[in-house]
Amino acid sequence: MDLADSADLEDNMSTLLALEHISKSYPMANQDVPVLQDITFTVNEGEFVTIMGPSGSGKTTLMHILGCLDVPTEGHYRFHDKDLAHLSEMQLTRVRREHIGFVFQNFNLLTTLNALENVTLPLIYQRLSRHEQQRRAREALARVGLEHRLTYRPNQLSGGQQQRVAIARALVTRPPLILADEPTGNLDSQTGLEVLQLFQELSQEGHTIVMITHDRDVAKWGHRILEIKDGRIVADREVNR
């Protein structure tokens, strides 16, 4: 997909997900501690959104809710016009399996598996054939430039390479949404830059990306920045380029 197509896509943007008055609180010492309060925003298909906030602002909890790893206490979460807020664990699993790819700060690769096996993991749970698993995993690893590191274990790879394996794992199911939680947090600035460039390329290829960070310079890579503080959205603005 070239740039003209992606611009074309932005013209008929359709809503991928919408959060409506989402709240989340955790019971702690007989008290409900609110972490997120009245969060409302939408993400369109093909958008690259960054959610920026200091640590403790609730941004990881927000990502868990966006990724169906957790459920909100209140509010509605529409994904492809389907309300996910009150789905069963089995239904949430299906959403994660089919629609969402995760990239974490500490890579979260399984240390006992090599790069190819790590990328294959989501496809195993999709019950794809062995042949299809191999083909797609190799393709995803080639996309992130690691086709020569297929049999390397995570401890044999550099931080940047590990994060690229993790990105390949997120891409391999061709999900409508890629969620990244501080993807550069554990990387030096040069490697971090390369990872951010990779995200930018993926965005230009049409992937919808929601990235969470505490770093304003990292946040600027998105098309749009949502600022979150003390569990509330305090700003929502387009990035001027």
Binding site: L69, M90, R96, N108, L121, Y125, Q126
Partner: peptide, 12 residues
Amino acid sequence: EIGIRKAVGAST
């Protein structure tokens, strides 16, 4: 590991 597997689509 269980968390990672669930995140990438492993069911209960």
